Structure formats: structure tokens, C-alpha cells
Computed example of a mutant assay.
Amino acid sequence: MSDRHERERAAWVLARAGHRPAARRRGERLMASARRHERYESGAGDMAVAEVTTRNVFHRSVAREDGVLNKLGWLIWTVTWMFWVAVLVGPALLAGKALYGLGALAARRLGPLRSWPYLVLALVLAGVLAGAWFRWPPEGWDTVVRSYACAQVVLAPVRAAWLVRAWGWPAVKAAPSGTGAVAPVVVGAPVQEEPSPVAEVVRVEIAPVLVGTGQKEEEAVR
């Protein structure tokens, strides 16, 4: 689909991935999705080959070394840090991904996604929550609960802003206003014809020719 700009975004992400496997995987996924949509629109069908070669973060973290014991140790380490990430910022990660998904759905009408609206939303939420904190100060365990909730609310749009850049939306340039717009055509509507220019009448005055008398008249008769 052309409105998703997947090929442009994939090229932008892959050009800046460097040695980061997570960024390279995102670029490969975008490129694979772009090719899949192109095949679908052309009626060529889907291919059975896998186009994403970089493994996900779980596989990369576990399969760092060969050997059963090494992989088992890295498996325990991976599950541990993923568990604590889910506990500490899991709601913010999910809410940020949801905000990003809503923005991606609205990109067809509102234009390409940008990070700054999410960052502005994060600042506004932080200000509102700070005002509510000083207006109704927490006590006891309520402090921990409210701190955790406020952190999730503020980090969610920050996460969405990061996803906008991570998935290559800065590569999509917004169309300039006044260009590329197609006026709607109403069937059966009267067509307004432009008035034809009226030709101006140009008057040419010819000065009278006087024929002299005498010799000039005789020469004129001859």
C-alpha cells in the first residue's frame, strides 16, 4: 500500500542500522511487508520464502554461545531481565505501542507520523500529573502506586515517539500544501464554462489622398 510508505521507511532504517541488529530487523520487516503488499496488489500471490534474516531479541539473547549449558544460562538471564522490564515499564510499552498504532491508522488522513505530537502530549501529561501531585499529595503506599502510575502514563507517549523514528517515519516527507490535490468531480453537476474573450474592434483610419491639379492631374490621367 502506497500510503504506508514501507519501502521508503525500510531504506531509511536500514541505512542507519549500522551494527544494531534490532534496527536491521525492523528495516527487513518493513521491506518484506512492502514486497508482500506489492505482490498482493499485482496478483502475484505470496512467496513461501522468509525475507527477514535477523533474529528477534529473545533468540539473539539466548543463542549468544554454543553449548547446552551456555544457552541455558543465557535463557535464565534473558527471562529474568525481560520479566523485570515487563514489571517496571510493561504498561508504558504496551500503551505506547497502542498510541503508535492509532497514529499509523490515522496517517492516511492526517499525513505521515511525527514524533513531536507525542512528545508534546508527554509534557502536557507530566504537567497535569505534577499539578495533581502537589494539589493532592499522596501518603504511605499511595505514593508508590501513584508514582508507578504517573511514570507509565508519561512514558507511554515517549515510547510512541521513539517508535515513530524507529520505524522510519522521518523518511516520509509531508506533501506541500496546494500540490497534488485533486478536485472532486460531481457527476451530473452543471459545468461552468469560462467566458470567451470578446474580440475588440480596431478602427483603422486612412488619411485621404489628395491629387494635385495641373501637371500632376495629367500625369495621373496618363
Results as ranks from 00 to 15, higher is better:
residue 39 R to Q: 09
residue 199 A to D: 11
residue 91 P to Y: 08
residue 115 S to K: 05
residue 26 R to D: 03
residue 193 E to P: 07
residue 162 W to P: 00
residue 119 L to P: 00
residue 146 R to F: 04
residue 136 W to F: 14
residue 31 M to P: 02
residue 203 R to Q: 11
residue 123 L to W: 04
residue 118 Y to T: 00
residue 158 V to S: 03
residue 82 M to C: 11
residue 184 P to T: 14
residue 120 V to N: 10
residue 106 A to K: 11
residue 143 T to D: 11
residue 48 A to V: 10
residue 18 G to I: 07
residue 41 E to H: 01
residue 32 A to V: 02
residue 113 L to I: 13
residue 203 R to W: 05
residue 91 P to R: 03
residue 141 W to Q: 10
residue 147 S to K: 02
residue 5 H to A: 12
residue 32 A to S: 11
residue 181 A to C: 10
residue 91 P to G: 03
residue 149 A to K: 04
residue 161 A to C: 12
residue 86 A to P: 01
residue 28 E to H: 04
residue 178 G to M: 12
residue 78 T to E: 06
residue 81 W to S: 02
residue 130 A to H: 01
residue 127 G to D: 09
residue 138 P to W: 15
residue 206 I to L: 15
residue 209 V to S: 09
residue 212 G to R: 13
residue 5 H to L: 06
residue 10 A to G: 10
residue 127 G to E: 04
residue 146 R to N: 05
residue 38 E to N: 01
residue 106 A to H: 07
residue 214 G to F: 02
residue 154 V to Q: 00
residue 173 K to R: 14
residue 143 T to I: 12
residue 19 H to V: 01
residue 94 L to G: 07
residue 113 L to Y: 14
residue 64 R to W: 14
residue 35 R to C: 12
residue 163 L to Q: 02
residue 220 A to N: 14
residue 145 V to H: 06
residue 50 A to T: 08
residue 68 V to R: 08
residue 212 G to L: 13
residue 132 A to H: 11
residue 31 M to V: 02
residue 206 I to T: 15
residue 121 L to R: 12
residue 19 H to M: 04
residue 180 G to I: 04
residue 21 P to K: 04
residue 163 L to G: 00
residue 132 A to Q: 13
residue 167 W to F: 10
residue 115 S to R: 09
residue 189 A to L: 06
residue 5 H to K: 10
residue 165 R to Y: 03
residue 149 A to L: 13
residue 125 L to T: 00
residue 25 R to G: 05
residue 104 A to M: 03
residue 146 R to L: 12
residue 91 P to Q: 01
residue 203 R to E: 10
residue 42 S to M: 08
residue 10 A to Y: 02
residue 85 V to N: 09
residue 207 A to M: 04
residue 107 A to Y: 05
residue 218 E to Y: 08
residue 134 F to W: 02
residue 98 A to Y: 15
residue 174 A to M: 01
residue 48 A to D: 12
residue 206 I to A: 15
residue 25 R to W: 08
residue 92 A to D: 01
residue 152 Q to G: 00
residue 95 A to L: 13
residue 216 K to T: 10
residue 66 D to Q: 01
residue 123 L to N: 07
residue 17 A to R: 13
residue 155 L to P: 00
residue 213 T to F: 01
residue 194 E to H: 11
residue 40 Y to A: 15
residue 137 P to E: 05
residue 89 V to T: 05
residue 170 P to S: 05
residue 142 D to E: 12
residue 125 L to A: 04
residue 192 Q to P: 05
residue 161 A to G: 11
residue 123 L to H: 06
residue 22 A to W: 11
residue 180 G to V: 03
residue 17 A to Y: 15
residue 209 V to G: 08
residue 69 L to F: 09
residue 9 R to E: 13
residue 148 Y to H: 04
residue 13 V to K: 08
residue 106 A to T: 13
residue 47 M to I: 15
residue 40 Y to G: 15
residue 66 D to I: 00
residue 19 H to P: 06
residue 171 A to P: 02
residue 137 P to I: 00
residue 211 V to E: 12
residue 107 A to L: 02
residue 215 Q to C: 11
residue 209 V to W: 14
residue 47 M to K: 04
residue 150 C to Y: 14
